[in-house]
Simulated assay, not measured.
Amino acid sequence: MDASRARRGGLVALAACIGVWLVGSGSSEPVRPPTPSPGEALSAHTQYPAAIAALPGSPPTRIRIPSIRVDAPLTGLGLRADGGLEVPPPARRDLAGWYRDGTTPGATGTAVIAGHVDDAAGPAVFYHLGALRRGALLEIDRADGRTAVFTVHAVEVYDADAFPDSRVYGPSPRAELRVITCGGGFSQRTGYRGNVVVFAHLTGTY
Rank of each mutant, 00 (worst) to 15 (best):
G24P: 08
S25L: 06
G26Y: 13
S27R: 04
E29H: 12
E29M: 09
E29P: 01
R32I: 03
R32Q: 11
P33E: 10
T35S: 09
T35G: 04
P36T: 08
G39Q: 14
G39C: 09
G39W: 11
E40R: 15
A41W: 13
A41C: 12
S43F: 05
A44L: 15
A44W: 11
A44V: 14
H45P: 01
T46I: 12
Q47G: 04
A50I: 05
A50W: 08
A50F: 09
A50Y: 03
A51S: 15
I52K: 15
I52L: 15
I52D: 11
A54Q: 12
A54Y: 06
L55E: 09
L55A: 09
P56G: 13
P59A: 15
P60C: 13
T61L: 12
R64K: 15
I65P: 00
P66E: 12
P66H: 10
S67G: 07
I68N: 06
I68D: 06
I68A: 12
A72K: 01
A72R: 01
A72C: 13
L74S: 03
L74V: 04
L74P: 00
G78V: 03
L79W: 12
R80Y: 13
A81V: 05
A81I: 04
A81M: 06
D82W: 15
D82I: 06
G83V: 06
G84Q: 10
L85I: 08
L85D: 03
E86F: 14
V87C: 14
V87I: 09
V87F: 15
P88F: 14
P88A: 07
P89V: 01
A91F: 06
R93Y: 14
L95K: 13
L95D: 00
A96R: 05
G97L: 05
G97Q: 00
Y99P: 01
D101V: 04
D101I: 03
T104I: 03
G106D: 02
G106M: 06
A107C: 12
G109A: 10
G109Y: 01
G109Q: 02
G109V: 10
V112N: 02
A114R: 01
A114G: 03
H116M: 01
H116E: 01
V117L: 07
D118S: 03
D119E: 02
D119F: 02
A120I: 01
G122Q: 03
G122Y: 07
P123M: 08
V125R: 00
V125A: 00
Y127R: 00
H128Y: 07
H128L: 07
L129E: 00
G130S: 04
A131F: 00
